[in-house]
Write a protein that binds this DNA or RNA. Structure first.
Lengths: 304, 304
DNA sequence: TTGATGCCATACATTTATGTATACCATCTG
DNA sequence: CAGATGGTATACATAAATGTATGGCATCAA
């Protein structure tokens, strides 16, 4: 059918239209004009032999075919971005951009200070931090370095196991003053307010496997946004899990039921090809050093 | 520096030049002209801020920077190819192209007959078979479906464990007539000719772990090309490992030292996103059925 | 309703990218 | 050495992609 392969630029245009929902918006984003974007889409539809958008009321609606192609286009976009990062910066200088993926908690609470000292040392280093609890794929180059909570199963990845971060149940002082501390798990279940996750994350499954008696605990505050959860905890809404090293920084947090303890593994992972890149190398090393420092607060934690 | 992102087409041009070693050859491949290709490279060098090729005698030599970027460009190429495969064929019909990766032995000896019946049933199905012992990455979309000898470690992959394929030592009848059968491993080591792999493959390491006494066996015929190895075996050059189900098909092959037996796991793996694609679905199912059928010859094998 | 806004489609102008032709330089071969 | 082959670089012509301008059609708010 399509004898000639479409221009790769069409994929970029296609993805932008998909993300912005209109030809005009995509054109603005790309620095093109609306007719050009329309022509790109037309040409791509011609090439793949399928309608990609239904041109109807309420703007452009992506067809099923478009949604099938979307992840491929996203891979293309992340790969080109990674290529440009890889190209930037000279070979022996620490400069250019490095993109880091980490969980929300680590990314927002722990990494900034680590990265601050790193950037003070290397002023030409640009850091892109993506704190997200959806795992970004290093093989697909969505990030250069990732702080992970699971052991990396993929080959071609350079992984460094950092440590085990402990989590315990904490409440804010104001909450304890009003409701007291739970003394037993049964007490916790019946008389106290819990703060927890919305979805069934791997993290929750681990918790339930270790403490089956916690199953069925009713959460009175749920969110998938870690920062929101922690702010709820600090605001005295209820009792929730918190990373032990983090809790030590905040004197107003009180540990409850210290016999309950979870632990999550922490890994720093990087694509093997990047170990020759100075900026990735120093960032990797800085993350290792910084996180090792961070988890030091783990074991010296006084219990309740 | 480079305020504007380069055209994605430049990456395609860049990769083609890298693969073909000259502007002119790349131009022929792409259906462009040599000046255009040269301009693309110039523009890309401008964008990434690095020389990509040293324009000297003996053609274009890729710089270090170019080699760093190469894997990214390869990912782009395989992704666009996968995108086009995904786009081809209507949603409920079994048509379009499916790309299968398999080991050389399985790909050349076993799959063709399986795929023949599949294609007889679905005439519009186009199969691309890539028999290669280098593992192609499904996450990077180098193939749609893979027949693997290792358990898939990656998530987002739909994997089906087929069976354990046994390997034994075989020789051609003509070899046995001339040299006799080895009766002991020591005999094999000292008095017989072995056929084996050139590189240290995972396969060899497995073998040595199981039969350490085989270490130091001298191979009188080496190749990394499985078909060449098997033809050497059939030509009576020496003794080598062969898949038991395959050997049963050829009455002229004789098993020697039947107490030596290796086994390799077999998996069929597909990217999870593809399970809604009819052509991938039926191909996956056909491979499962066909390989299950193939390994049936495993255990009923008569010994020596 | 009316005007404002935002979107897509079309016709036309123009810039930009590409192709053609050619010169020049290597290497290999007889 | 001469000629053939295969490569890159440059100047110029051309084709192709892009931009501009405009019209039509929705939705939303006054």
């Amino acid at each position: 059918m399509a004898s000639t392969e479409p221009s790769w630029d069409f994929y970029r245009t296609f993805l932008t239209v998909l993300e912005h929902g209109s030809l005009s918006a995509a054109a603005r984003e790309l620095g093109l004009t609306q007719p050009t974007v329309g022509r790109h889409i037309d040409a791509l539809e011609q090439s793949v032999g399928a309608e990609l958008f239904t041109r109807s009321q309420q703007g452009l609606l992506p067809t099923d075919a478009a949604l099938v192609l979307k992840p491929y286009a996203e891979t293309l976009a992340s790969t080109t971005a990674a290529l440009l990062r890889a190209a930037s910066g000279s070979r022996d200088k620490v400069s250019g951009t490095v993109r880091i993926s980490a969980s929300e908690v680590i990314g927002t609470e722990v990494l900034p200070s680590i990265l601050a000292t790193l950037q003070a040392r290397y002023p030409d280093l640009v850091v892109e931090l993506s704190p997200s609890d959806t795992v970004e794929d290093l093989l697909q180059r969505e990030a250069d370095i990732a702080v992970r909570m699971v052991a990396p199963a993929q080959e071609a990845l350079l992984a460094r196991h950092i440590a085990t971060i402990n989590l315990g149940l904490y409440a804010h002082r104001s909450y304890v003053e009003r409701h007291g501390k739970p003394e037993t798990i049964e007490d916790l279940r019946r008389r106290h307010k819990m703060i927890g996750f919305d979805r069934q994350t791997a993290y929750i499954r681990t918790m339930l496997k270790r403490y089956p008696m916690l199953d069925g605990v009713s959460f009175s505050f749920r969110s998938d946004h870690s920062t929101a959860l922690h702010n709820a905890l600090r605001a005295g809404i209820g009792i929730g899990f918190y990373q032990t090293p983090l809790a030590r920084r905040d004197a107003s947090l009180v540990r409850v039921l210290p016999e309950i303890e979870l632990s999550i593994e922490t890994w720093i992972v990087m694509h093997e090809n990047l170990k020759t890149s100075p900026r990735c190398r120093v960032t990797f090393d800085a993350l290792v050093a910084g996180l090792l420092d961070y988890i030091k607060g783990n074991d010296t934690e006084e219990r309740s």
